[in-house]
Simulated scan of single mutants.
Amino acid sequence: MDPKALLLRALSTPYEALDPRVIDFAGQSTSVQPVRPFLDQCRARLESAGGAGLCAVLEEWLVPDRRFDTAWDPIFGTVRRLRRDKTTEDLERHAATLGLKLHAEGFIEGEWRLSLGGQHRLLWGTWLLPPAEEVAVRARSNEVSLDLRLGDAIRRVEGRRSGAKWVLDGADPLAVIEDPRFPVAFLPPSLLVGSEYDAIRATVATDVPDTFRAAWSEALTLLSQHAPRFSPWVKRFIRNIILLRNEDGALRSNSYPDLPGQIQMSMSDNPAAIAEMLIHEACHQHFFLANRFGPVHDGSDDTLYWSPVQQRGRHIRYILFAYHAFANVVLYYRACRAAGIEPRDGFYEREEPQLLPQLKELERPLRESPALTPLGRNLFEPLSTRIH
């Protein structure tokens, strides 16, 4: 068995021990590797937009041992996608987003100016900057000054770091939940630029109501006290959330491999449902990371297997993708019930019997297909063993 594939068993379920070497390798493959080709690809265009200083900042990032928890972020996925798809759309905006991310994390100091190629809103940490067509940055480890030009007007934003947090004057704070067990920020509609958001943009919540905040706190308590293996599993990879209004009563969640660390989830006042959505999307994040190490199938099986989740035929990769998430959700149900926890509405007792037949349907091709690689089998088999 490939030793790397065995190491990656830990990405199948939180019941497998995580070797630190997995995260160490992931930190390099996720953070430094995508930036070098991106910089090579866009340097001339950035310099023509006045961004020579920004190029110097990005160069400074290209050293070993960068933190994985910084790099598992949508902007690093975007940089990887731009190179893969050979596209230059909104290149200046993406480069500025990456530069501001590195400054706000306190890694790199610098001064630079960049024309953004259009009107955009950018982030500094958990602060939404005013709309701008050009940005000028003077960043130090604990303070920042930004001049944002829109037309003939220039707005200055200044800020200081206090501990791990930035406080900015002239910018808008994102909605956040600052629970020390798992602090998160919620993205507003104004940041959701791109066709991948077209289907949800109109349903994105513009505030985070107190009922959701209270249910979020109860969900974290549920995980930490009654399903403790899933608590670090959730916190490891989720960075920010797009919160969706729940207008038809159906709970939904989603993630995209090109946007690591970012998830979508429906607003709910049910702590058990919130915990389930977090676990489900954390599973997808672990699956996306596993795919950075190699393919989960060898390409020899083109069969479209029936997916009871999607109600249509799906490739073996997506059968594994679904099984990986829903099997872990069932293990979460069982952990809570073993701890004597059952929501008043019988959430676990109701949901598990509905999922088990679907898992059985998904499991059949995963057992029978010869196409799964050692990596794919090590994502599937530890789960299957525990489910049965």
Rank of each mutant, 00 (worst) to 15 (best):
K360Q: 07
L116C: 11
F107L: 13
R344H: 11
D24I: 08
R45T: 09
L54R: 05
G99F: 14
L146P: 03
R156Q: 14
D198R: 06
I200C: 03
A282T: 02
E92Y: 13
E349W: 06
D73Y: 12
A214Q: 15
R83E: 13
P308N: 10
D69P: 00
R43M: 08
L150G: 01
P74M: 10
V208T: 08
A96H: 07
Y332Q: 05
E89W: 10
P260K: 14
T303L: 12
A282N: 04
G106W: 13
F212C: 13
Q285K: 03
T126S: 13
R43Q: 11
E92F: 13
W233L: 01
S29Y: 09
D301W: 09
M265K: 07
G53R: 11
L289D: 01
E134C: 03
G27E: 11
S253C: 10
R113C: 15
E351L: 15
E351I: 03
P130Y: 14
R43G: 08
T87F: 10
V144F: 15
L223P: 04
M265A: 06
P228I: 00
H94G: 02
A96W: 08
C283M: 01
K360Y: 04
L174H: 09
A153R: 10
L7D: 02
W166T: 12
K235T: 15
A275R: 07
G99N: 14
T70Y: 06
L356Y: 02
P183S: 13
F321Y: 11
E59F: 08
P14R: 00
R81C: 05
G151Q: 03
Y348S: 00
P370H: 15
T126H: 10
A171I: 10
E381P: 00
C283H: 00
A214V: 15
N254Y: 15
R239M: 01
E276D: 11
L192N: 07
R45I: 08
H286N: 06
R239N: 06
D152F: 10
S307F: 09
P232N: 03
E178Q: 08
Y348H: 12
P189M: 03
G125M: 06
D19C: 13
E47L: 03
R83Y: 05
T206H: 09
P14F: 00
W216G: 05
R83S: 09
D345Y: 15
S12W: 01
A5I: 09
